[in-house]
Design a binder for these strands. Structure first.
Length: 241
DNA sequence: CGCCAGGTGGGAT
DNA sequence: ATCCCACATGGC
């Protein structure tokens, strides 16, 4: 249905007008510095990430798997503290220098910490040997890197135009539309819908993903959706209309 | 107490 | 291909 594409574009316009630029991906190691807020978001500045920023983003993408960002932030702070205290850097080789169990303890707050310590080591091992920009298939072949994590890295680190599908985008469009794909479709099916609706601009894809997360947190929550004052209420199927 | 949070891999059907 | 489950902490 071509109508979905129109809906997707309209939602972007409404969310951007309502919430403004989100300054994603947050970078914890720059939190509080020039242009970054206390949580590492950087709305409205032109961002030039360095190698350490890039690696922190990749680490965060793994840590946030099925986990709230708040918990991830605690882990990133612990990692940052450890890295500083031991004169290390945010780099694949320095992360690999940590024993698995030590790494697991540092990232305890983000849950699944044994699994994630293992995933981070596999990812670091890949990135350490990675000469140029990784391709999507290469990232997907790494144990622990699925489509959402791969696309988060490709989009926010390398600015490659992959729209990041997550639980929030599925929920919001599952509610605002009557298309079953958003709740039941595979990752690639849902991503394709977005790719067909919006031209491949990494800046727009990044902003859209961030806006959907913000909207899901403020209004389109899982348990008690706050429909009062919701900017999408006029074009949403949820509850009534 | 239960449910949710910026998923993924492995095994059974 | 598609379900089902383990993985696990912290907030509300």
């Amino acid at each position: 249905m071509e109508k979905i594409g129109t809906h997707i574009k309209e939602v972007y316009q409404i969310l951007f007008e309502h919430y403004g630029p989100q300054g994603w991906w947050p970078i914890q190691r720059r939190a509080g510095s020039e242009g970054f807020d206390e949580d590492g978001y950087h709305p409205g500045i032109e961002l030039r990430i360095d190698q350490e920023d890039a690696f922190e983003i990749a680490v965060g993408a793994v840590l946030t798997q099925n986990t709230s960002w708040k918990n991830v932030r605690m882990s990133l702070s612990k990692l940052h503290e450890y890295i500083d205290a031991h004169a290390l850097t945010w780099s694949p080789s320095d992360l690999l220098s940590l024993p698995r169990h030590s790494l697991a303890e540092l990232i305890r707050s983000s849950g699944y910490y044994n699994q994630k310590a293992k995933k981070l080591h596999f990812l670091a091992d890949f990135l350490r040997k990675c000469e140029k920009e990784p391709q999507r298939n290469a990232l997907l072949s790494i144990w622990g890197i699925g489509p959402e994590t791969a696309d988060s890295i490709l989009l926010y680190v390398y600015r490659q135009p992959y729209f990041v599908v997550d639980a929030y985008s599925r929920r919001i469009f599952g509610r605002t539309t009557s298309a079953a794909d958003f709740s039941k479709g595979t990752y690639d099916t849902v991503q394709k819908i977005f790719h067909q609706a919006i031209s491949p601009d990494p800046t727009i894809y990044a902003e859209y993903h961030a806006l959907l997360v913000q909207h899901a947190k403020v209004h389109c929550r899982a348990r008690k959706p706050l429909c009062t004052g919701c900017p999408l209420s006029k074009i949403c199927n949820f509850i009534e209309k």
